Simulated assay, not measured.
Amino acid sequence: MDLAIYAVQEATARGRVYPEAESSSGRNPWQRDRDRVIHSTAFRVLQYKTQVFVNHEGDFFRTRLTHSLEVAQIARSIARSLRLNEDLTECLALAHDLGHPPFGHAGEDALQEGMKDYNGFCHNDQSLRQVTRLEQRYVEFDGLNLTWESLEGLAKHNGPVANPDPYLKAYDQFYPMELSSYASTEAQIASISDDIAYHSHDLDDGLRAGLLQFDDLKDLPIVGEALYEARKVMQESSVSEHRSNRLRHEMNRRVIDVLVSDLKKQTLLNIQELQPQNADDIRYAQTGIVQFSPEVGHANQMIRQFLYKNLYHHWRVNRMSRKGRMLVQELFGVLSTNTDLLPKEWQVRLEKAQEKKKKSGAMRVVADYIAGMTDRYAMEEYQRLTDLAIST
């Protein structure tokens, strides 16, 4: 496909930290990046990490893995329609949650609390650590040796970085990513596709779990209209509303269609106004180029607020989250004060960190170890360390 002039181009790619020969199979740099992400340990274990519902709560709820695949599908379709670099977009969508700890945001909150005196914890920064240091698959280097463009997109998943983590600062000095600027159009698409995916699909999971009811949604912008149209189609097709799975899916795909269609239209308007001549014109723009229209952007915020109030803080979800938070807190407490309990390979990492005579390095090793756990492994490790089981 003929790429737009503002797309990330192979001819102007900035390369990798450790130079490598071109792929013998003819893959471009971002196809290689995508494949490395897919084959990474961190990507594989996303299958057993919480999205909203703990993995063992049910076989049909989203996990971090299925969420990442859904983000990639949405992001790639948007990139294709805007004539952007699909492979880079897909890579970033698949990699954006590689640093997420077990038990979703409850686990992240627990690690943030444990690491508050040691530069904190953020799953976005952890994703960068995962692909630059923690993955150990290659003889020549640690990490996955992804391209500059992929690393930039991960570092700026939420936009320009105002107060970067020390690891981001160090990496920026070593391999400059200009953290105060925006990322590429492709990275911006991957980021906003994350919102589209989890808003629409968390509604679906909430309905499936019985924590939300269809009538709760009828006044919610975009969602209410989609629900009305879905019910209308079912009535015209003489399908009973008791077939709630069909109603959910029909509503959900309409929500995604409205959000994606509006995003593409508004982004094209923004591009026409900016008239970028290359990818750097996107990076150094005064604002992000990939946006919803004001009306849909406001509606999207209302969907977010609804989900926080009615799903993420539902008493049943709160119970699951509390157990996950407590478990991660306990694991961090035990392992940070008894680092000799870490597995052998992590003892090696610990020794390297302690050579610098900084406690923050040792605490970071503990956080790295816990962040890489699945929900199930974290529960098993907790039981091994305490002889106490967490009931599910």
Rank of each mutant, 00 (worst) to 15 (best):
V52K: 12
D280S: 10
E295K: 13
R14G: 04
D262Y: 07
L46K: 08
I271Y: 01
T185C: 14
K218I: 06
Q291E: 13
H123R: 11
E295G: 09
E86Y: 03
K232Y: 05
E10T: 14
V233D: 14
V161I: 12
L84C: 11
R80Q: 11
Y369L: 00
R129P: 05
N278L: 00
V296C: 06
L179V: 03
R253Y: 14
Q277F: 05
P294L: 05
S321Q: 13
C91I: 01
G206L: 00
E186P: 07
I256R: 13
G143K: 02
Y382V: 01
V366K: 05
S180H: 14
A226C: 15
N145K: 13
A226N: 01
L350M: 01
K359C: 06
V223D: 02
L211E: 12
E236F: 08
E225L: 10
A299N: 06
S180F: 11
P19F: 05
D2E: 15
S184Q: 09
P166C: 07
S200D: 01
E273Y: 12
T89Q: 09
Y228D: 13
N300T: 15
V52Y: 15
L134Y: 10
I74S: 09
S336F: 04
K344M: 13
Q47N: 13
G58D: 04
L212F: 05
I222R: 08
S150C: 15
V239M: 07
N158H: 13
E225F: 04
A13M: 05
Y171I: 08
K116M: 13
R76Y: 04
C91R: 08
L327I: 07
Y228S: 14
H242Y: 08
T267M: 09
R32I: 15
E20T: 07
A279E: 15
